[in-house]
Amino acid sequence: MDLDFILAKGPIFLAAAQLTVTVAFFGILLSAVVGLLCAVVKFYRWPVAHRLVSAYIELARNTPLMVQLFFLYFGLPRLGFIWEGQTCAILGLTFLGGGYMAEAFRGGLSAVGKDQVEAGLSIGLNRFQLLRYVIVPQALAVSLPAISATTIFLMKETSVFSIVALPDLMYVAKDLLKEGHSSETNTLLVASYLAVILPISLIFAWLERRLRFAGFGS
């Protein structure tokens, strides 16, 4: 093991990790927003919208992220939409993640009983307030394990971003592998992913424990 090589290349991985985290952060945040909106549309069964949402969820979940990125990066420019790699990566992750997040939230929403909805209506809450103050907070607690699994899954999916020429962790590792030093590079790569993803796992595990203790008891 060549420690000098690892120390020398460390900063490259640090920069790549920052990029991975940035793209993942925005992609996952947007996924959660898209997913929640889709889940609400399905929860209320809004006539046309809920069919469109179902179609989107199937498309997002049953096609590989790499194919979705190809479409965004190589397909759409032909139609006149040209995006740079980072935007493509965030949009691709959002497209994929939105489908998974929608399913994660849907499980939580369907766990909130009709009686709770009626109790909320009875004090005069409108539809939006009902979601904001009664349904979503309860659904979030139920959905948390699924949201946690989806977040970690999406973090790992970022490793295909190198195909849209985004210098993320996987990209810089592939680049270095061309120069040899494969065991050092692989060590750096594994360590970088662990350093990024493990804390997120631990935070979610802590959150789940807290919410389980808060466990509503119903």
Partner: peptide
């Protein structure tokens, strides 16, 4: 005002927050 057989308090809110929700957010 409506009171239900199975109480239907909001389980994620304290007793006080249950009571304040309507007056503050609705009224």
């Amino acid at each position: 005002g409506m009171v239900f057989q199975n109480y239907e308090l909001f389980p994620h809110l304290t007793a006080l927050e249950n009571i304040l929700l309507g007056p503050i957010k609705v009224q």
